[in-house]
């Protein structure tokens, strides 16, 4: 459908990749850990190594949670746009097929939040 308007109604989207100074947006959520109220948004260069996000970024983001220290990353299950996804930690975001404004989330089997409440 289209907007009902008195004349042509066409505007550029506000958040195209060219506006992020060389970065692209990536959203990351941790399943079963709603103590973090929402998934996060990050501006990363497409050339960034996926493993560097895990090792360098996520501890500062999720480290407050007691479950975080117990994560076995080899067992983590990933979803991209809700579908199973196998990231290669040694490859870049681009080589992992991650584009601007993609959303990924990970589940850490056995870790279900504060007292198992998914918090």
């Amino acid at each position: 459908m289209a907007v009902a308007a008195v004349s042509k109604y066409e505007f550029a989207p506000a958040d195209t990749q060219d506006k992020f100074h060389g970065a692209q947006l990536l959203y990351i959520g941790w399943e079963d850990h709603l103590l973090f109220c929402s998934p996060f948004a990050f501006p990363f260069p497409a050339t960034m190594r996926f493993g560097d996000i895990i090792a360098g970024v996520l501890p500062g983001v999720f480290g407050y949670h007691p479950d975080f220290a117990q994560i076995d990353w080899a067992k983590a299950e990933w979803l991209k746009s809700g579908k199973p996804f196998q990231p290669d930690f040694d490859k870049s975001l681009a080589d992992n097929g991650l584009k601007h404004k993609d959303v990924i989330r990970f589940r850490t089997p056995g870790l279900t939040g504060i007292k198992g409440s998914c918090s």
Partner: peptide
Amino acid sequence: KHYRPRYEFW
């Protein structure tokens, strides 16, 4: 069930 455990932890 869902919120008290989170709050008590905080």
